[in-house]
């Protein structure tokens, strides 16, 4: 059922995307990603890898994980539509190197690793500054976009820190002890 919900969420992105298939450049003749991309070439298998990266950054806990919420597709859409070419190129290059890095680290492609193996690999990239390598750029772009996707998404803003479209109030002396951020966006949007 959750998967169905996620798919429903995805329809939003798919509907908004235009019709060009993500067939640019070197996706090694593999099937393209499941959403249309205009500027970045990402294959279906890379999309799966990206989903695992997002899930490692924002795993399923007592709340849904990134995969279930389709965060990886949000990452791809934002990368494709809203990022500069330089960032797109580094992202695609880094994504292409991830499986090699995983092979070196734990002898398997990234997605085939255990959760701790995947976490350890990404923790290593977390320590590398953004821009220091394509792999690090890929990681930091993914994290930034995934966090944005999660915290501005419908699930988060309706069940975690609730977004209020119409607050109808302002109090500049509100006790922190009375704030329950998990129930209220608190005007901090």
């Amino acid at each position: 059922m959750l998967r169905r919900t996620a798919l429903k969420n995805l329809a939003f992105f798919a509907g908004a995307a235009t019709l060009l298939p993500g067939c640019l450049a070197d996706a090694k003749r593999e099937p393209p990603a499941s959403i249309a991309l205009k500027h970045v070439a990402v294959s279906a298998s890379q999309e799966k890898t990206l989903a695992e990266v997002c899930e490692t950054i924002l795993p399923k806990t007592d709340t849904p994980g990134a995969k279930e919420l389709g965060i990886h597709l949000y990452v791809l859409k934002m990368l494709d539509d809203c990022c500069e070419k330089k960032e797109q190129q580094a992202f695609v290059a880094g994504l292409g190197q991830l499986d090699d890095a995983a092979q070196k680290a734990y002898g398997r492609p990234f997605a085939a690793g255990t959760a701790p193996q995947k976490l350890a690999l990404l923790q290593g990239l977390e320590r590398q500054p953004d821009g220091s390598s394509d792999l690090a750029s890929f990681y930091h772009s993914t994290k930034r976009l995934a966090v944005g996707g999660y915290t501005t998404g419908k699930y988060f803003l309706t069940t975690q820190i609730v977004y209020e479209l119409v607050p109808s109030r302002y109090n500049g002396y509100f006790p922190v002890s009375k704030i329950n951020l998990s129930k209220r966006r608190n005007g901090l949007s």
Binding site: T56, L58, P59, T61, V147, Q160, I161, V176, L181, L188
Partner: peptide, 25 residues
């Protein structure tokens, strides 16, 4: 002036996600 939210405690993974959902002031 506004109060900042802080969720930098854990950089990645479960703790990180939890801190996004339950940020500290």
């Amino acid at each position: 002036a506004h109060r900042k939210l802080d969720h930098t405690e854990h950089p990645i993974g479960e703790g990180f996600k939890h801190s996004l959902e339950h940020p500290a002031f």
